[in-house]
């Protein structure tokens, strides 16, 4: 039994419900950039994640690259979430979302409309437009966005079932750059807030969850760790630690010391 197994989280936490579906883990993970498929599967299992993201790409007809990810991940065991990564305009994002729904097993999409190659920051105007179209087609849209409150509010209005602000740029590992912005988004939105991108190590995950958000999605932090399986375990514990600390409510910060031991009864 691991430390994580010994903690009865269900009794200490509330369910994560997105778009009417209850999820078992607040940690969601990607499937990209692992050294091997075996390592990917081992890391995902260690993370305890239920939601696993995948990308939609052309089949390599020459078979010079590896096979599709479904040869390694069972849709019965994981909730496969297709993304629209790599799409730089609304038309492409809609096309990839529809292909993903046809390829997959559910009507959910992690919507990305990227606005800039260097930063991979989202095109929020394009995101809002694409969210409206997809929501009207019955998609459950999880929208990857920046840490901007107004964009997050507009995405909620457009019909997103959850909003996914970044902690820092995709693949950067810089951690949570603007805790206040994330807290503000969480306070103001009704739909769940899942922080997506930028987490580098377990303390980053804890800090993100301590802001009160509903979950985290990460990929590179696991895949690019020297030992992805150990890091996946650390992230699982880090997410749970941050979530419990948030629910527990931290003590107030003071800039003066307050003794922990009695000040009376000292020897005379």
């Amino acid at each position: 039994m691991t430390l994580a197994d010994s903690i009865t989280l269900p009794q200490l936490d509330t369910d994560l419900v997105i778009g009417g579906r209850t999820f078992t883990s607040r940690l969601m993970v990607g499937t990209g950039k692992y050294a091997s498929n075996a390592q990917m599967v081992a890391a995902i299992e260690a993370s305890g994640a239920e939601v696993v993201t995948v990308a939609v790409r052309r089949v390599d007809l020459d078979r010079s690259k590896d096979e599709g990810v479904l040869h390694h991940l069972s849709p019965d065991k994981f909730f496969l979430l297709a993304n629209t990564a790599g799409c730089f305009n609304v038309t492409d994002a809609l096309r990839y979302a529809r292909l993903g729904r046809a390829a997959g097993f559910n009507e959910w999409v992690k919507l990305e409309v990227i606005g800039d190659q260097q930063t991979l920051y989202p095109d929020t105007a394009g995101l809002i437009e694409a969210t409206k179209v997809l929501a009207a087609e019955g998609f459950k849209v999880m929208a990857y966005t920046n840490d901007d409150l107004i964009a997050a509010l507009r995405l909620e209005d457009a019909g997103a079932v959850c909003v996914m602000p970044l902690a820092s740029p995709i693949g950067s590992g810089l951690g949570l750059l603007n805790p206040m912005a994330i807290r503000t988004i969480k306070h103001r939105l009704t739909v769940p807030v899942i922080v997506d991108a930028g987490v580098g190590t377990a303390s980053d995950a804890t800090l993100v969850m301590e802001q009160g958000v509903d979950g985290i999605l990460m990929n590179t932090a696991l895949a690019a760790a020297s030992d992805p399986v150990r890091m996946a375990t650390a992230m699982r514990l880090g997410v749970d630690a941050g979530r419990l600390a948030y629910l527990a409510g931290r003590m107030p910060r003071r800039e003066v010391a307050v003794p922990s031991s009695p000040t009376t009864g000292m020897l005379g």
Binding site: G32, A55, R57, L61, N83, A85, A103, M218
Partner: peptide, 8 residues
Amino acid sequence: LVHFVGGG
């Protein structure tokens, strides 16, 4: 012809 590949 498309399919799912690893991605974040």
